[in-house]
């Protein structure tokens, strides 16, 4: 009757538990920004969303490994049905669709931002390192996001790279550069709680 099995409980270590919790929460926050975080801009059809800020800060605050893990959770959760993609959409169709390339690039972009900012996979105190390092990391992240995003947009939509760049990338780049400076202000000012910043 009973199909119970016994096995040893394999506990997750303390630090890993905290990192899993933070990775999941940052993934969920990035998803929440996709809907609630949008601020309409006058005279622009493109709403201003803070999603990319989630990518930057996942890399900067969790480091390259857990930052990438967090964005991977975001993608998998979206693929199996959490409404975390732009406008509250979900499903494998979005990933295979026109804008999927931007999403696929998130784990790589977060890893690049974290690696360049911290100069490796060890976390450093972001308040004291030179600003150029997080800026270089986030610039690399933006380049990765737009390269992969534009390539998939052009391939899936069957249009030229120039048209894809015009339609799907150029209108968004100024906003993302702007978010890069917001992220920099956030990590420099200490306006995030001290427990957010690595010890």
């Amino acid at each position: 009757m009973s199909d119970t099995t016994t096995s040893d409980v394999d506990l997750v270590g303390d630090e890993t538990t905290l990192n899993i919790a933070r990775a999941a929460l940052l993934a969920a926050l990035t998803g929440a920004f996709a809907i609630v975080g949008s601020i309409p801009i006058p005279f622009s059809p493109v709403p201003f969303t803070l999603q990319v800020l989630g990518v930057f800060l996942a890399g900067l605050l969790l480091g390259p490994i857990w930052g990438a893990a967090s964005m991977l959770l975001y993608l998998v959760a979206g693929a199996v049905g959490a409404p975390v993609f732009a406008g509250g959409s979900a499903g494998i169709g979005i990933l295979a669709g026109q804008t999927g390339g931007y999403l696929f690039s998130y784990p790589i972009a977060a890893a690049a931002a974290g690696y360049l900012a911290h100069g490796g996979s060890e976390l450093t105190d972001l308040r004291v390192i030179p600003s150029i390092r997080p800026l270089a990391g986030m610039t690399a992240a933006i380049v990765i996001i737009y390269a992969l995003g534009t390539a998939q947009f052009a391939f899936v939509t069957d249009i030229g790279l120039v048209e894809a760049l015009t339609l799907a990338s150029l209108p968004f780049i100024p906003g993302d550069v702007f978010k890069m400076f917001i992220a920099l202000v956030l990590i420099r000012s200490g306006s995030l709680n001290e427990h957010v910043l690595p010890k």
Partner: peptide, 27 residues
């Protein structure tokens, strides 16, 4: 817009990290 986005992001990240710390303890 810059101020609004910054304030929303600070408060949003702070709450998320506070929740993450509590969640880790509970786990």
């Amino acid at each position: 817009i810059r101020d609004r986005a910054r304030l929303l992001a600070v408060a949003g990240f702070n709450r998320a990290f506070r929740r993450a710390d509590r969640l880790a303890l509970a786990l």
